[in-house]
């Protein structure tokens, strides 16, 4: 069973503000899933290469040729907060 602390840690990594109720629901659900997927432990994979892509291709490139950018209005059109030039975010505190 995942601990409440585990859930908090993962929620913080994932940037989710979970309520106490959500945590109490998620804890058994995730624990059950984690227990379920542990079945993979029984598979011998010592000599097996991980398979990242469904179809394995290499060296997919494009040429270094420009195409037009979005107009600024288009770039900012869907943003929740802008000043018409920049995306605005709550103050970033660096130090």
């Amino acid at each position: 069973m995942l601990s409440e602390d585990d859930i908090h840690k993962v929620a913080e990594l994932a940037r989710l503000n979970l309520s106490e109720q959500q945590i109490s629901e998620l804890r058994p659900q995730l624990s059950k899933l984690i227990d379920y997927v542990a079945v993979l432990e029984e598979v011998d994979t010592d000599e097996v290469e991980p398979m990242v892509h469904a179809i394995e291709q290499t060296n997919v490139f494009r040429d270094d040729i420009r195409s037009p950018p979005l107009p600024r209005e288009g770039a900012l059109a869907n943003a929740p907060k802008t000043d018409g030039k920049y995306f605005l975010v709550p103050q970033i505190i660096e130090h």
Binding site: L2, D6, I7, K9, V10, A11, L13, A14, L16, L18, Q22, L26, Q29, L30, L33, I34, V37, L40, E41, V43, T45, V48, E49, P50, M51, V52
Partner: peptide, 29 residues
């Protein structure tokens, strides 16, 4: 949210090999 939590957990430090990398290997099988 459930899936984000699940995925974040299985990629997090200390678990990625046991879950994610392991799953990629079984995927090949």
């Amino acid at each position: 949210k459930r899936r984000i939590m699940m995925g974040t957990y299985t990629l997090s430090a200390g678990y990625i090999d046991a879950y994610y990398v392991k799953a990629l290997k079984v995927r090949r099988l």
